[in-house]
C-alpha cells in the first residue's frame, strides 16, 4: 500500500485525533540569529546532522530558514563569512502549534520540504517537524490506541475506531464531576436504569453497566473527576463512551495488563487500584477502543451486543 493510502487508512481509524503539531514536533531545536555568519550555520548542520536551521530574532520569532542547498550556493560563491541574513529564505512555510495532523501531512505533501518550523500565535519558534518526527508520531500513536474486537472479521472499510454517531446524538448523557470518590459510580447507576427501560436483556445490561462503572471510576481516580459518560442504545447494541480531560495514559498496552496500576496506597485503601478495571472492560465488552496519550484526554468506547446472549 502506498504511504499516502496507509496514512489515509490510519486517519480513518481516528488514530490521529489526539495529535497536533505541538505533540509531533521536536523541541530540541537549534536556531541562529540573522547576524550570525553562514559558516556558523554550516558547522551547526554538520555537527547536529540537520538539514535546515531556523533563523530567529532576539525575541525568538521566526524570520527565516537556511537550508543545505543555500549553504552549498554560499560555498560556491565564497560567501561563508557573510551574515545568514543575506542568504536565508524569508518566506518560510511554517506550522502552528495547534495545527492538526492532517494539516501537517498536507504541508509535507504540498511543499516537498523535509522540515517545517512550528510557531506560536505570536510567531515565536517552538519546535521543528521533520519527516522523521511524523513517522515517529505515527508509531507512537499505536501505543496510544487500543482496539479490541471479538468480531475480527471487520475490515477498515466498514469500521472506524470511534462511532461517528456520538457527534450527532446520544440517547444517554451524564456529566461526570467528582471530587474524590463520593458520587463516583452515579452515572453508571443511571445508565443502568436507563438501559433497563430500553428492553435489553439482563446480562448485556450488566456487562455494559460494569464496564461503564470501571471507566467512570477511572475518570474519578486517575483523571481529576471531570468528564462525560454517554451511550447510544439502539438496534440491539449498546455503545458506551466515557471521556475525560486528561492527564491521559502514556502506554495503553501496559495499562491493559491485569495488575498494572499507578494508583496510590490511599486509593487502594478505598477499594480501587488493583489494576483490573481495564482488563474487566476488555473481558466484558464485545468491542473496545481506547484513545489516549501522555497529557491527552482519554476516550474509552465500548460496544455490547445484545444478541450475544
Amino acid at each position: 500500500m502506498p504511504l499516502e493510502q496507509s496514512v489515509e487508512a490510519l486517519r480513518y481509524l481516528g488514530l490521529f485525533s489526539n495529535l497536533d503539531a505541538s505533540s509531533v514536533m521536536s523541541t530540541a531545536v537549534h536556531a541562529l540569529h540573522p547576524e550570525d555568519r553562514v559558516a556558523a550555520a554550516r558547522i551547526l548542520m554538520r555537527e547536529k546532522s540537520i538539514s535546515g536551521v531556523p533563523i530567529v530574532d532576539a525575541d525568538f520569532r521566526l524570520v527565516g530558514l537556511i537550508s543545505v542547498s543555500k549553504i552549498i550556493e554560499a560555498l560556491a560563491d565564497g560567501r561563508l563569512a557573510d551574515s545568514v541574513d543575506s542568504v536565508m529564505t524569508r518566506d518560510v512555510i511554517s506550522l502552528h502549534a495547534h495545527d492538526t495532523f492532517e494539516t501537517i501531512l498536507s504541508c509535507f505533501q504540498r511543499f516537498k520540504f523535509g522540515r517545517f518550523p512550528v510557531v506560536e500565535e505570536d510567531g515565536r519558534l517552538v519546535g521543528m517537524i521533520t519527516d522523521t518526527d511524523v513517522l515517529s508520531a505515527i508509531i507512537r500513536s499505536f501505543y496510544s490506541v487500543y482496539v479490541h474486537d471479538q468480531r475480527r472479521t471487520m475490515t477498515l472499510g466498514s469500521f472506524s475506531a470511534l462511532s461517528k454517531e456520538f457527534e450527532n446524538s446520544a440517547d444517554f448523557v451524564y456529566g461526570i464531576s467528582c471530587t474524590g470518590l463520593e458520587n463516583a459510580g452515579e452515572g453508571s447507576a443511571r445508565l443502568k436504569a436507563f438501559l433497563q427501560t430500553k428492553g435489553f436483556g439482563e446480562s448485556v445490561v450488566r456487562r455494559a453497566s460494569v464496564c461503564a462503572y470501571e471507566a467512570e471510576i477511572n475518570v474519578c481516580i486517575h483523571a481529576g473527576g471531570k468528564g462525560s459518560l454517554r451511550a447510544i442504545a439502539r438496534n440491539g447494541e449498546i455503545i458506551v463512551r466515557v471521556e475525560d480531560e486528561g492527564p491521559g495514559i502514556e502506554n495503553i498496552d501496559l495499562a491493559m495488563k491485569e495488575g498494572w496500576s499507578t494508583a496510590t496506597d490511599a486509593i487502594r485503601e478505598l477499594g480501587f487500584g488493583a489494576g483490573m478495571g481495564l482488563a474487566n472492560i476488555r473481558r466484558f465488552s464485545d468491542h473496545l477502543v481506547i484513545i489516549s496519550g501522555k497529557d491527552k484526554p482519554t476516550k474509552v468506547e465500548m460496544i455490547f451486543l445484545a444478541d450475544k446472549e
Binding site: 495488575g259 496506597d265 487502594r268 485503601e269 477499594g271 488493583a274
Partner: peptide, 22 residues
C-alpha cells in the same frame, strides 16, 4: 486486600489470603 487493615489487625503467624500482588 487492604494493607492498613492487615497491619492493624492480622495476628503474627497468620496465613494471609489476598489478591494484592504489589
Amino acid at each position: 486486600d487492604l494493607l492498613s487493615e492487615v497491619i492493624a489487625k492480622a495476628a503474627p503467624g497468620s496465613v494471609w489470603a489476598t489478591i494484592q500482588t504489589h
